[in-house]
């Protein structure tokens, strides 16, 4: 099925987020081969030029690497993947805190709610 995109972000950015999400969740493992640009473009229902850009940016971020004649692979550099996980957490927290501040809540208040939540899930 084609992917549904949200309207407020460039499509290539949403695809990068999606692939990074797959790596963080472990759906795409370190060293695993990615589909070819064309295959992934067809699957996602997007322009092949857009997918080319996605692959290029992932490579520039050293999240993937291209092996000549073989295609793109998720990096085997575990440190890079650990850093990616960390960056993503930071990013989520930043977005969260922006909303928290917009409502005028304090961080301590929110930490308390988070603690209660994580307690109730056990």
């Amino acid at each position: 099925m084609s992917i549904e995109f949200s309207p407020d972000k460039p499509i290539y950015q949403q695809l990068i987020d999606r692939i990074m999400g797959d790596i963080i969740r472990g759906n795409l493992k370190s060293g695993e081969k990615l589909p070819s640009v064309r295959e992934y473009a067809v699957e996602a229902g997007v322009n092949a030029n857009t997918m080319q850009r996605v692959y290029k940016e992932l490579e520039q971020m050293e999240i993937t690497e291209t092996r000549r004649g073989q295609g793109s692979f998720v990096t085997e550099n575990e440190e890079r993947i650990a850093a990616l996980r960390h960056e993503m957490k930071e990013q989520l927290v930043t977005t969260f805190l922006q909303s928290v501040e917009a409502f005028g809540f304090t961080r301590d208040e929110m930490v308390k709610v988070l603690m209660e939540r994580s307690g109730s899930d056990d």
Binding site: S2, V42, G45, V46, N47, A48
Partner: peptide, 14 residues
């Protein structure tokens, strides 16, 4: 529509 869109991506060369 989805088939046609995918055909377009698959069978044209950017």
């Amino acid at each position: 529509r989805e088939d046609i869109a995918k055909g377009l991506i698959r069978f044209t060369d950017p």
